[in-house]
Amino acid sequence: MSEAHSEASVGNAATFDTHPGADAGVTPESPLQWSRVQGHVTEEGGAAEQIRVVERPFLGHLVLRGGAITLDEAVRAELGVSLPGKPLGLVLDAEGSRSVQWVSPDEWLVIVPAGEEFELENRLRARLGDAHFAIVNVGGGQTLLELSGEKARELLMKSVVYDVHEHGLPVGKAVGTVFAKTSVVLRRPTEARFELVVRRSFADYCVRWLRDAGREYGLRVESASP
């Protein structure tokens, strides 16, 4: 892969750093801002309930498109993890803060800590050269909710049509499925928690649904301060 190629490929696709930078004095608002104003979301922390829902806002979300063979080496080199080897796989890096999820045979969702996504996109593009692939930054369009607690599974049974039992959704699996009257990406990164990737415009609906469905168990929705 030559330097000339990688430059050409960057020229063919427009990359764009969406962040103003820390010194710009711009405060972002998470997709749950309106829910927070409405009192549906509280500050992180507080009394333990049977279910905790915690928003992880502002993470970097990239959609990778391309064949597994094309992408695998670049992802391994730049992210330190391999692409999931089989459909519906979800892999995390050693810290557990970067993940790659199988979405379809030629689509992966990469989630990385806030602010890493632009650099990662550029590095991947450089490494992939003129191979046929696409990288799309979708970080502003979705947010991640973590669900934990002993009743989290029951809460999900009320909400998603997918089988959330250990047999259906073991650790290391992720699926797109129906959530109430919308859709989410449902992930099982660790034994202790589930994750929902929800679209920004549906986030308030999802949170209101979770609060309503979780009322009988006791449920808090929390988010980091804006």
Binding site: K181, S201, Y205
Partner: peptide, 18 residues
């Protein structure tokens, strides 16, 4: 089920809804 009252149908909001 739960698909009633204010959860009857999803309401999608833009980032400027507030």
């Amino acid at each position: 089920g739960r698909h009633c009252r204010d959860l009857f149908d999803p309401e999608r909001y833009t980032a400027l809804h507030q």
